[in-house]
């Protein structure tokens, strides 16, 4: 089968998953429970995506843990996203040099 057909089907499916709820859901949700649920979802999603995956993200648990600790400390101090993200990378990289 043509790769272009695969790509079109893949892209179409992915787009509709995003566009249907985002485009056509116009009402404000009145259910208080549902509003609370949707408020908490982002934090829940990001947390589940990060832990424990972050510990495997560099291919070496030691460098990943050093990077994670760096990120946690800087994030706790309310540093900007880019500073936290790049400092985690830099410390993971530097740790890797000494292993």
């Amino acid at each position: 089968m043509s790769i272009m057909i695969y790509i079109a089907v893949m892209a179409g499916t992915t787009y509709l998953i995003r566009a249907i709820p985002f485009g056509f859901f116009r009402k404000k949700i009145t259910s208080k429970f549902l509003r609370n649920f949707l408020y908490y979802i982002p934090y829940a999603v990001l947390s589940a995506m990060t832990i424990p995956a972050i510990f495997y993200s560099t291919g070496n648990m030691t460098t990943a843990i050093v990077g994670t600790i760096t990120a946690v400390i800087l994030a706790y101090c309310n540093m900007p996203l880019i500073v936290v993200a790049l400092s985690a990378t830099l410390t993971a990289f530097l740790t890797g040099l000494f292993l």
Binding site: L46, S47, M49, T50, A53, I54, S57, T58, G59, A64, G67, T68, T70, A71, V72, L74, A75, M79, P80, L81, I82, V84, A85, L86, S87, A88, T89, A92
Partner: peptide, 10 residues
Amino acid sequence: GIVLYGMFLA
């Protein structure tokens, strides 16, 4: 590999 996860933590 850790960049995006660092951002999530932030």
